[in-house]
């Protein structure tokens, strides 16, 4: 009996670029879910990360735009210096509010708003990072019946963030980054 999911949210900080590349490169270009990503960045970064990942992955990767409709087979990257949120009508929303956990974009902000919208149909993934951002958001995803995945801290360039997430929530799957992409693909029964 397989549950059907509607979206995947991923949070990453220090060391995230390589982990993201490893995971997203394993998703096919017709992947049946949207993937929405917060990677902490310098506040004056441009869209380099989205361009870089798009070049290395089959699935389409783009920077999130305000009010954009969320589509399957797309990876949306939060732009630097904006929080990224999900609206009830499955569109992306940006804000320039105060930082949360010293971060804008913040992983908690994305995860919490995604949990509100997708409830049990959401998959939350916390990757490497030297921050505690994402742990509260992942806790909410779990509380709303969603699926939680955390990168094995032993495989993380910065173990603090995955460890913080594991500390506050009973995590469903703790995996090394090279297994996470395959795992997400199998969740959807998509062919690789």
């Amino acid at each position: 009996m397989k549950k059907s999911y509607q979206a995947i949210v991923i949070g990453a900080s220090m060391g995230g670029m390589e982990a993201l590349k490893m995971i997203l490169a394993q998703l096919p270009d017709n992947f049946s879910l949207p993937v929405i990503v917060v990677q902490h960045q310098m506040r004056d970064s441009d869209d380099f990360l989205a361009v870089y990942l798009n070049r290395h992955c089959a699935i389409k990767v783009k920077e999130a735009c305000a009010h954009e409709l969320i589509l399957p087979a797309y990876v949306y990257i939060a732009p630097a210096a904006y929080h990224l949120l999900i609206e009830e009508d499955k569109t992306l929303s940006l804000s320039v509010d105060l930082p949360v956990n010293y971060s804008i974009p913040s992983i908690d902000v994305l995860f919490e708003s995604a949990a509100d919208v997708y409830g049990e149909s959401l998959v939350g993934v916390v990757l490497t990072g030297a921050s505690a951002d994402g742990s509260q958001g992942l806790k909410k995803i779990k509380a709303y019946g969603g699926l939680t995945v955390v990168q094995d801290p032993n495989t993380a360039e910065a173990p603090k963030m995955p460890s913080a997430a594991i500390k506050v929530t009973q995590i469903d799957h703790i995996l090394p980054p090279d297994k996470i992409g395959v795992f997400l693909r199998e969740l959807t029964n998509d062919e690789g």
Binding site: H83, L85, E87, E88, S93, S95, V109, D116
Partner: peptide, 9 residues
């Protein structure tokens, strides 16, 4: 207002 930010605030 867009609901997600509003709700957060």
């Amino acid at each position: 207002y867009a609901q997600a930010s509003l709700k957060r605030r």
